[in-house]
Computed example of a mutant assay.
Amino acid sequence: MKLDKKDQQLLNVLQANARTPVSELASMISLSDTPCLRRIKKLEAANVISGYHAAINPKAVGLHVSVYAFVRLNQNSVHAAEQFEQQIAKLAHVLECSVISGSYDYLLKIIAADLESYESFVKHQLGSIAGIANIESTVVLKQAFTNKHLPV
């Protein structure tokens, strides 16, 4: 889908605050309410806007440790990858799972209450997934910033 200037403006405003009322959005991008709402629906239908969510502070809900885990599988096959991805998708503490190049097959972003709970997660949940050859973890000492606003 080709985005025009109005679509880009609309996406930028929605990324900053998805709860902005349509009348305010329309005013901000110099449209009337109905065409603005039509654009939002078009962007949703095209999966440019893939959803809306509340940003929750992890520390406020007791999740103080972020870890990036590099995972290598025993074998490089479509079946092994599909099995791994199906199993990893079931683990609530895994926030992201990316297929990567290099010495490892996957990069996982994992969140936990503390290092002890991360260790337990690795031993009892992640480590129990068949087909994993190696896991290497990197603990985040400080999150300098997170930017979820895409440059559209």
Rank of each mutant, 00 (worst) to 15 (best):
N12D: 04
N12L: 09
V13F: 07
L14F: 11
Q15N: 14
A16K: 15
A16T: 12
A16N: 13
N17R: 07
A18Y: 07
T20A: 11
P21D: 07
P21E: 04
S23F: 14
E24T: 12
E24W: 04
E24I: 13
L25I: 05
A26L: 04
A26I: 08
S27T: 15
S27Q: 15
S27P: 06
S27V: 13
M28R: 15
M28D: 02
I29H: 04
L31H: 10
S32V: 12
S32D: 08
D33E: 15
P35L: 02
C36Q: 07
R38D: 13
R39P: 09
I40S: 05
I40N: 09
K42F: 12
A46S: 09
A46H: 05
A46F: 00
N47P: 00
N47T: 08
N47D: 14
I49E: 02
I49F: 11
S50F: 06
G51T: 03
Y52R: 07
A54G: 12
A55G: 11
I56R: 00
N57W: 03
N57T: 08
N57D: 14
P58Q: 10
A60K: 14
V61N: 12
G62D: 05
L63V: 00
H64R: 12
V65S: 06
V65T: 06
V67N: 03
Y68Q: 00
A69I: 08
A69F: 01
F70T: 04
L73K: 03
N74K: 12
Q75K: 15
Q75G: 10
N76A: 06
N76G: 11
V78M: 06
H79V: 15
E82G: 01
E82D: 13
Q83P: 03
E85D: 09
E85Q: 10
Q87W: 05
Q87H: 10
Q87I: 01
A89N: 06
K90F: 09
K90I: 05
A92M: 01
A92N: 00
H93V: 01
V94W: 02
V94F: 07
V94P: 04
L95T: 10
L95F: 05
E96S: 11
E96C: 08
C97W: 03
S98T: 08
S98I: 00
V99S: 13
V99R: 13
I100G: 08
I100Q: 00
S101M: 13
G102P: 06
G102I: 02
Y104L: 03
Y104M: 05
Y106L: 00
L107W: 02
L107A: 11
L107F: 06
L108A: 08
L108M: 06
K109Y: 05
I111G: 03
I111E: 06
I111A: 01
I111S: 00
A112G: 04
D114V: 09
L115D: 01
S117A: 09
E119T: 14
E119L: 12
